[in-house]
Simulated assay, not measured.
Amino acid sequence: MNAIKEIYKEIDLNIDSVKLKGNLRLADNSKGIIIFSHGSGSSRLSIRNNYVAGLLLNMGFSSLLFDLLTTKEDLIYENRFNIKLLSERLAKVTKWVRSNKETKHLSICYFGASTGAASALTAASMSDDRYIKAIVSRGGRPDLALGILDKVKTPTLLLVGEKDKAVIELNKLAKAKITGICELKIIKGASHLFEEYGKLEIVAKLSGDWFNKYI
């Protein structure tokens, strides 16, 4: 298989009165763009999300990883769990992707981790269905968005590690509330962070298949 050519850019996203840092990876002949919504205390520099983004690049997907909070905002611990704020940021960054000349032609999907899954689902519920094609949650907390899950129509894949017992139950609870297409897959031998050998590769493969199916 030939390596996918990419253009990598560090960008500033001016959202309302704040400037958010982002890393944009554009795949040659891209199938679509995956916007990452990070978990509590994480950022565009997340090792795991960048690794998954790299694997998705090899499948032909562009990606945008960005900081949902500024450095100053992140110092306030409560902001990391402010799903309303994080969802609004994600929705506004999505509008930027839809208007940016390099990305406006691309289909959009979300990849959420931990609390980022709740903001991805919430942002999707705030958007016109046609704009967000699919959502993947990795070790996510979709239960933090229980109040809006019945409004989520975007096809959603919930990925949870077999050892992450508490989060499995929370994902089952969320799945029961989502009225659109939703699947829950338990990754054998994986813990919450999918640190075990080969588990993130499985996450990327399942995610790529999901995005391909609905893009």
Rank of each mutant, 00 (worst) to 15 (best):
I4G: 07
E6Y: 02
I7Y: 11
E10R: 11
E10K: 12
N14L: 14
S17G: 13
L20F: 03
K21E: 15
N23R: 15
N23M: 13
N23I: 14
L24V: 04
L24T: 04
D28I: 00
D28N: 07
I33Y: 06
I33E: 05
I34F: 05
F36L: 00
S37Y: 01
S43I: 07
L45Y: 12
I47F: 11
N49M: 02
N50E: 07
Y51D: 15
L55M: 14
S63Y: 00
S63T: 05
S63I: 00
D74I: 04
I76Q: 07
N79K: 11
N79A: 06
K84Y: 08
K84Q: 07
L85N: 03
L86R: 13
L86D: 02
L86E: 08
L90A: 00
R98M: 15
R98K: 15
R98G: 10
N100A: 04
K104L: 08
K104Y: 08
H105W: 07
H105M: 10
H105R: 13
I108P: 09
C109F: 06
C109L: 02
F111I: 09
G112D: 02
A113Y: 06
S114V: 05
S114T: 08
L121M: 12
A123F: 09
A123C: 06
S125Q: 08
S125K: 08
M126P: 10
R130I: 07
R130L: 07
K133F: 12
A134K: 05
A134L: 05
I135W: 03
R138C: 10
R141T: 04
P142M: 01
A145H: 12
L146F: 12
L146N: 15
G147H: 09
I148Y: 09
D150P: 06
V152S: 06
K153Y: 10
T156D: 05
L157R: 14
L159Y: 01
E162I: 09
K163Y: 13
K163E: 15
V167G: 03
N171K: 05
L173H: 13
I178K: 09
T179E: 13
I181T: 11
L184F: 13
A190W: 02
S191M: 05
S191K: 13
E195R: 12
Y197H: 11
K199N: 15
I202C: 04
A204R: 11
A204G: 13
K205Q: 13
G208W: 00
F211N: 09
F211A: 09
F211V: 07
Y214L: 10
I215Q: 10
I215T: 12
